[in-house]
């Protein structure tokens, strides 16, 4: 009984914060002024000579993020190898 009341309170808090957060975002389809994105859209072709703006952001303007991402993938493969290594787990 006490657990159920506690659960209802937690549910109301979670749904309330989620609703309050999502209902305060801008209207769908109208993000307003986005100077950084407009800079990329207008200048990425001249600066980096790539047609795909997303790729030029991922691999050039924010290459450091991608370095971390590649390192995360490498670490995941290493940890899967460690989990399934020969000789078992004991």
């Amino acid at each position: 009984m006490k657990r159920q009341v506690l659960f209802l309170v937690a549910l109301i808090i979670v749904v309330g914060t989620l609703w309050g957060g999502l209902s305060r975002i801008h209207q769908f389809g109208d993000p307003g002024a986005a100077p950084m994105d407009d800079y990329y859209l207008h200048n990425a072709q001249a600066e980096r000579s790539a047609n795909n703006i997303v790729t030029s952001i991922v691999f050039d303007y924010r290459g450091f993020d991608t370095l971390g991402e590649a390192a995360v993938l490498f670490t995941a493969v290493c940890s899967v190898l460690v989990v399934f290594r020969k000789g078992g787990h004991n």
């Binding site: 980096r48 000579s49 790539a50 047609n51 790729t55 030029s56 691999f59 050039d60 290459g63 991608t66 590649a70 993938l73 490498f74």
Partner: peptide, 15 residues
Amino acid sequence: SSGTIALMNMAVGVE
């Protein structure tokens, strides 16, 4: 075109 972006695409693709 696109300089090192193409090279990095290939490197990440291989990885």
